[in-house]
């Protein structure tokens, strides 16, 4: 009788040990999962770089979706030397970025008197944040989408950046050998 009780106690102890070991393993597994997810989050937020976007050598096929007509009443075009180009730029140097909306608020226009299509880029520290579609003469933009993933690289505050304006021949779509850079002040809001 006593032996039987002792045997039972031993088995109970064994079972308890096994339970404890299983619990420990489970906790260890959970800890590993937690560490893994924290590592992935830290990498995604701080270290992941968005896909490299190259400046197009030919004008993009798609017209910028946020482009709106300026209705500037301009009928005449700028005089353009043969083989050269003539553009007019209207812009403000202040840009706001709304991280929750993933949008940039700006003022940039390609007035009707221009002879070239344009693509507008917004760059911070050599990183492309925004790239518009084709902006034809007579159109302006006040909103552009941030490039995918770039919102994770920015935080609330002020940045110094620049517009890069690329020009394209309307008939051939070829990029001009001249481009323009404009320093801008960027305010990032959450």
């Amino acid at each position: 009788m006593v032996d039987e009780e002792k045997g039972n106690q031993k088995e109970e102890k064994k079972e308890e040990k096994i339970k404890k070991t299983r619990l420990l393993l489970l906790l260890l597994l959970l800890l590993l999962l937690l560490l893994g997810s924290i590592s992935v989050t830290v990498w995604a937020v701080w270290f992941r770089k968005p896909a490299v976007v190259l400046s197009p050598d030919y004008a993009p096929q798609h017209v910028e979706e946020y482009a709106e007509s300026m209705d500037d009443g301009e009928d005449s075009k700028l005089e353009q030397p043969e083989g050269g180009g003539a553009v007019s730029l209207t812009y403000s140097r202040e840009v706001t970025i709304d991280l929750s909306e993933k949008k940039a608020g700006l003022l940039f226009a390609n007035p009707s008197k221009s002879n070239q299509n344009m693509v507008l880029q917004l760059v911070i520290d050599d990183t492309l944040i925004v790239q518009s579609g084709r902006l034809e003469p007579g159109n302006r933009v006040t909103t552009l989408d941030l490039l995918e993933g770039t919102e994770t690289m920015l935080s609330k505050g002020g940045y110094e950046g620049k517009f890069i304006v690329l020009f394209y021949q309307p008939d051939s779509g070829e990029k001009a050998m001249l481009n323009t850079e404009i320093p801008v002040e960027i305010t990032v809001q959450e």
Partner: peptide, 15 residues
């Protein structure tokens, strides 16, 4: 009032 810049750029064929 934000300053709104208006600038024309004209270039030759650069040949």
């Amino acid at each position: 009032n934000k300053t709104v810049y208006s600038v024309d750029i004209v270039w030759g064929a650069m040949q």
